[in-house]
């Protein structure tokens, strides 16, 4: 049934790959947008509500901050520790409620975002904790508000490591997006399952692997380049990158 000599084989294969790649990029891209929009504030909130943090007294209450901090950490840890395959299946009712269906690329965005948000929040947390406390003190001495400290000091100063953290996050979203193929989520993962696994087509498998590899390479390269441009300290981009990769844990 796989006939490489069929004149329609290659055109069909390329069309299939093109559509699947488009679906993967769509899933990953939209999930990434949600990840940044929600993961960044979540990470900042986790650091801020810690003892001695910028928001250690939410509404004037140290206890409220401690509770918020505990809840946020719980969410982040939960999201990080549940295996994706389980999370993905467990989230099917949520996905159906939000998107109307649990099948296809759009539906896949829900579990992908939910797994990536806590992951990226942890990256943001680490990056922000690296910012020298002296800078926050200097900003206070200049009469900055808390919000100004976040927007003008913490985020800009932590931007380079956050970009590297984001690239690690994207890599794992791509990784998970392939797994979505198992539950008919579309994209390159579906191609690998439907053609490579169910129809024993080595050629489909190889091409899927090559495309995913290229996407990850390009993103990594872009992130490293971006982080280096954002870093005005000499030679610690590499160190930070290694730090994030060890945290990401592969």
């Amino acid at each position: 049934m796989i006939d490489v000599n069929d004149p329609n084989f290659w055109p069909q294969l390329w069309e299939l790959m093109l559509v699947a790649t488009g679906e993967t990029l769509y899933m990953v891209g939209v999930a990434l947008i949600f990840t940044v929009l929600l993961g960044l504030p979540l990470g900042i909130a986790v650091v801020g509500t810690e003892r001695g943090g910028l928001f250690e007294r939410v509404l004037g209450s140290r206890r409220l901050s401690a509770v918020i901090n505990w809840v946020l950490n719980f969410i982040v840890n939960l999201g990080r520790s549940v295996p994706f395959v389980i999370l993905m299946v467990a989230l099917i009712p949520v996905t159906r409620f939000l998107v109307g269906t649990s099948i296809g690329a759009t539906a896949a965005i829900v579990p992908l975002s939910l797994v990536a948000i806590p992951f990226f929040a942890r990256m943001v947390e680490i990056a922000i904790k690296e910012v020298d406390a002296g800078l926050i003190e200097a900003a206070h001495s200049l009469g900055a508000t808390r919000w100004q400290i976040v927007s003008k000091v913490l985020v800009p100063e932590a931007l380079a490591p956050m970009v590297l953290g984001l690239s690690t996050t994207v890599t794992s979203i791509i990784n998970f997006s392939a797994m979505v193929g198992v539950v008919a989520g579309g994209g390159l993962g579906s191609v690998a399952i439907r053609w490579g696994y169910q129809r024993y087509s080595v050629i489909h498998m190889i091409i899927v692997i090559i495309i995913i590899f290229i996407i990850v390479m390009v993103l990594q390269w872009l992130a490293t380049w971006g982080a280096r441009r954002l870093t005005h300290r000499s030679g610690d981009t590499g160190k930070r990158k290694r730090m994030f990769e060890s945290v990401a844990g592969g």
Binding site: H140, T231, H232
Partner: peptide
């Protein structure tokens, strides 16, 4: 505080 300038031992400048 905007009218009280402060200088620090370790400068505390934004690297970015």
């Amino acid at each position: 505080r905007q009218h009280i300038g402060m200088v620090f031992q370790h400068f505390n400048l934004l690297e970015s």
